[in-house]
Design a protein around this nucleic acid. Structure first.
Lengths: 196, 196, 196, 196
DNA sequence: TATGAATGAGGGTTCATTCAT
DNA sequence: CATGAATGAACCCTCATTCAT
């Protein structure tokens, strides 16, 4: 009977769950294994989480909030739209790299598990700040004229794809700088001759 | 009791399986439901497929071959690199739209189910033709100088993200034309002033 | 893999369940044991009953319907109220003796399990025919004047107690004849001097 | 944290246990809930009772002794057999009304839980004083000639049924007076014409 | 070919009980 | 005396798979 502080135990469970869920997916993930990795008994998990679903949701929501805060924190500071976009992409990419398991889990289970609508909503919400940046850039003359909404969707989708690819395949490494450049050269009004 | 040709039955099973697997994911998918949708008995499935895993693998491989052939078919014909790239993206996007379920399944289970290495290999294979196109474009003077491998990875990842977003969210519609344009403007040597 | 007709299996399950439920009560009863006694696998039970609760309810409802039909069948035929009462008591007692397990289960779980209101209603329904018999007897001059409702309640309660005692304790044997006599002597207008 | 005398705590546990056991039955009753209602920690219960079974047995035995004492206290005082019977029934009924939960629990678990033989014995013991009363009544000429043992069994069973019905169904109210009258009129030699 | 009743391993969850504090 | 986090056996139930028909 290992006595640990409740918070300690909860953290261990969350980490173990993140591991197992992201490796096996929600359905195949197995409470017994999570318990084992967390170094706790099966019953112990149910001291902190009502059930498998609640454990999963808690996981997702925590990371989601985290990511959201990260993005929000860097969004206000920048001056130019170019800088804003760079910050946006960097924040996302860095977060994704640091929390591979969450990203995998999130993408893997998106549209399959509970709260589908909530998830869809979450994704749509992500596009809005991006759209604002693009509009700002167009107004300031930094970006070429385009349908901000469409381009935001494409960029967001691409970002998702890049993150997914990096999470899935260790061979794929895409730095924020390269990605930003690739996207920007297409957006800058003067086509980027000045660059490179 | 329904006498059908074996091929007929097999087709029905495959379609049903694609439905169910893509909706629920491999782990949660249920042989009983597949059988019901296929209009066949449970035992019937095992006449054509050794087990659940085999059914799943058969599904994936068939579509994979199919997609590969599609891409290959359109790759040789085009003359300019720009055209080649456009064809490549269009083929992928159109295939993805026609086979949403497969795409969802493929992405969802990639890295989680069996044959992980095979899948990874499949993805890497996809990048090669793209890389060739880019190199061709650089040589022909159509594309700006860049690291073809890196850019190929980014484009492939973006394409994956676009497909995923469209498959997951009905609200996201990205046409091959718009996507190609977005990517091209960043690749064209002269930065796309001539365009638009 | 023992192949039996579905009906055969279902019967075996019902009998086993009746045994186990009545011996252990609903909460302590154990699906594995039921399966074992029924000579079937655990999963087999779930082919015929959705879950433990459904199995239990099905059991109860079937017997209830059965008892109800028995009582109804003998109620219409008799001429005198005395005879009616005798028939009523006899039917109940005989049924109870034949289905001890059900009675035990019914009493044991009454007020504790699901459908509490349904059960209460069932018990109240049972009193009505009894009340009618008493009223008939008072009108015909067979029975002394009394509050038919109260007396019906007492008789029904006593009947329940007798059945319970017999079901619980093999040492207690009360024949319909003796019980009827005991009750009747109190009901007959002339106090039963004529009798015995 | 709450400092209470041990006796105080024990009492609170017993009351809580009586509540929970009688509402849910032994098997479904839950130590956590008992602890909560008793306003004590789970571990606290185990300071006073070895385990669930011991707590239950302690409960039952205490009430049993209590009831037994009550009956004994009123049995010796009366002169006529009629009065004795009336006292017997009244004592039982009143005790039952005051301790509904115990009665429910006792009946519900009789024959299912531990010490089955002890319980059976307890019930048989109850019949003896009743039998004595009847024999006394026959000798004194108050009661008609009958098989005292059989009649005692019937009366005891009826009493049990009446108590059960009242405990289970709030709609059923049977006063000691009415019950006694109903039973007596059948027992009195002269059929009870003098009465009422 | 085709059926579907039967199997049983395995997974989610509960809860009596223990023990370090 | 008292606490409540931790344990793990045991329960209900699902579902891939088999096989007699």
């Amino acid at each position: 009977m290992n006595k640990r502080s409740g918070i300690e135990s909860k953290k261990r469970i969350i980490n173990a769950a993140l591991d197992v869920f992201s490796m096996q997916g929600y359905a195949k993930a197995n409470m017994r294994e999570i318990a084992k990795i967390a170094g706790i008994s099966i019953g112990g998990i149910y001291l902190y989480f009502k059930n498998k679903e609640e454990l999963y949701k808690s996981l997702i929501n925590d990371r989601r909030r985290d990511l959201f805060n990260n993005v929000a924190a860097t969004s206000g500071k920048s001056i130019s739209a170019t800088e804003s976009l760079s910050n946006f992409l960097t924040t996302y990419l860095e977060y994704a790299l640091k929390h591979k398991e969450f990203i995998l889990l999130h993408i893997r289970e998106h549209g399959f598990s509970f709260d589908i609508d909530k998830k869809r909503e979450f994704f749509r919400q992500q596009i809005k700040p991006l759209e604002k940046i693009i509009i700002k850039g167009i107004h300031s003359g930094e970006f070429r004229k385009c349908n901000a909404k469409d381009i935001a969707k494409i960029i967001m989708a691409s970002l998702r794809g890049v993150i997914l690819s990096m999470a899935l395949d260790d061979d794929v490494v895409i730095t924020p700088k390269i990605l930003t450049e690739f996207i920007l050269i297409g957006l800058l009004k003067n086509g980027g001759e000045g660059k490179k």
